[in-house]
Amino acid sequence: MATEINVSNPKLKRTLLRFQAKIAEGDYYEAHQTLRTIANRNVRSKSYGDAIDLLYHGAQILLQSSQPATGSDLTSYLIDVYNESDTKVTTESKARLIQLISLFDPQEPSLKHVGVEAVNWSINHGECQYGDGDIHNALGQKFVECDSLAYEAERHLVLGNSHSLDTYVKHIWSWYQQDSEKSNIGLYVSRCVLNYLFIQNVKNANQALDELLTLFTTEYPSFKYEQITESSVSVKLFDSLPLLNFVQFLLRVVSTGDPKLFNVLVGRYSPTLDSCELKDAVAYIGQLYFGIQVPKQVNLLQNLMSGFLGGR
């Protein structure tokens, strides 16, 4: 498929058309090297706009011609030029990266590194401390297709945009379906809910819970539950799935911000949280939504010594 070369500079256009012709002839190495040299020259003369146009179109052509290594190299170079030219995160600048990321084969080993570079650029030149949501979404959508990047996919999707939630729920559900121990459902659901609560996205936490509970109760009706409703508050209370019950109560209590009610809940489900290694996560929620300070780790030796030294 021929890439449409949409650049206003006629000289650049001629360069890119020659590049495209060399690629069509299968002369990948020379085409890549030539384009890199010209881009280098543009960077040295601080013609960043031209360098960006060249690298973006060149990377696109290579990635579409199944040349992932050289395509990835030009993508990395493009990000370097973004950094050097202090290019801010704008709709246009991030759209180039998102388009290139979308062309990568999910199995391409350099994609993870390109992802780190892209997120770091968006941290340093954008408004979000943890990176731009659209770039995270592009990476998450790609990473879910590569099982060795399952946890990385999750991180990107949680920090993604409005399109990420659906993919994240599918990702977690398909993971759960591979688990032969079906009573582990609470581990999968709580993961989604906690990850969203950590970044104070109560909306997505609720939506993820609703969607996963619907999938679970539909697909595995042998897990019995009772719908309990008091006033306008409701939960599905499961027979033998305490973590799934806990996580529903957790979302309800988060809405109140009441530390006493939170402590009652944590006390009640303490053995479950212990066995699932979720105490730290829940303590973090306690701090974030209820202002409950987590006690600092006590250094016994330091305490003992300070006692000997008159409490200093």
Partner: peptide
């Protein structure tokens, strides 16, 4: 649930902090 229903709502179910304002990612699960 009765106690929860009596309380006030501090964080509504559609509450979402803008990514620009997020200052922590939580703990590793």
């Amino acid at each position: 649930l009765t106690l929860l229903s009596l309380g006030e709502t501090k964080f509504p179910s559609d509450y979402k902090k803008d990514l620009k304002d997020v200052r922590g990612l939580g703990v590793k699960l």
